[in-house]
Simulated scan of single mutants.
Amino acid sequence: MEHHVVIEKLCSCAKKEEMAQITTYDAKEVAHEAAQTQLAYMQGHFCGKHEFQLVEVGDNFVIGMVGGCGCKG
């Protein structure tokens, strides 16, 4: 079974980093670990004008923005 990590909305920071909106993994544990790593990267390296949260939806993990996007791009 496939498990996905989905960035709900690609902000300009994610686009500058050329991040994929959906990545696919064979194991749920691997997908969860990848989602946590990606979330930490986004929170630590993006413009800081918004924050992100990780939500498990079924067998997938969605990284969504908390509030609006204030980054320029």
Rank of each mutant, 00 (worst) to 15 (best):
K28N: 12
V5T: 09
E8C: 04
N60F: 02
L39D: 14
A14S: 07
F61A: 07
Y25M: 02
V5K: 06
K15C: 09
F52C: 01
A14Y: 05
S12N: 15
F52T: 02
L54M: 10
E8M: 05
K9V: 08
F52D: 07
H50Q: 15
C47F: 11
H50C: 11
G70L: 09
A40T: 10
T24Y: 07
K49V: 13
E2F: 08
C11F: 14
Q36G: 09
K16M: 10
G48N: 08
G58W: 06
Q21C: 04
Y25T: 02
H45L: 03
T37K: 08
M19R: 12
C47R: 04
C71L: 14
F46C: 03
F52Q: 04
E18V: 00
I63C: 10
M1L: 09
F61R: 04
Q21R: 02
V66T: 14
A20R: 06
A20P: 02
A31I: 07
L54N: 08
G68M: 13
K72W: 10
G68C: 09
K15A: 11
A34D: 09
A31W: 08
A27L: 08
Y25A: 07
C11M: 12
V57I: 05
V30T: 12
K16P: 01
F61P: 02
M19F: 12
C47G: 04
G58A: 13
C47E: 09
G67V: 05
E18G: 02
I7M: 12
C47W: 11
A14C: 11
G70R: 03
L10I: 08
C13H: 10
F46A: 03
H32G: 00
C11Y: 09
F52H: 06
I7Y: 08
D59R: 09
C71W: 11
E18A: 02
E2L: 04
T37C: 01
K15Q: 15
Y41P: 00
A40Y: 06
H3R: 07
C13I: 02
M19T: 06
E29V: 02
E33M: 01
C47M: 07
I7E: 10
A31P: 10
E29G: 04
I63M: 05
E51P: 02
V30K: 03
K16C: 09
L39Y: 11
E56G: 05
C71T: 05
A35P: 11
M19V: 03
M42K: 01
E17D: 12
K49G: 15
E33P: 00
V57A: 14
C11L: 15
H32V: 00
G68W: 10
E17I: 02
F46I: 01
K9C: 12
K15S: 13
T24I: 10
G44L: 03
G70T: 06
H32Y: 01
T23H: 01
I63T: 06
C47A: 10
D26A: 07
A14V: 00
A14R: 01
K49L: 13
K49C: 12
I63R: 08
V55A: 14
V66Y: 11
E51I: 00
E18W: 00
V30C: 00
V62G: 07
H32P: 00
I7F: 05
E17P: 00
Q21T: 06
V66G: 12
K72T: 10
C13V: 03
A34E: 13
I22G: 00
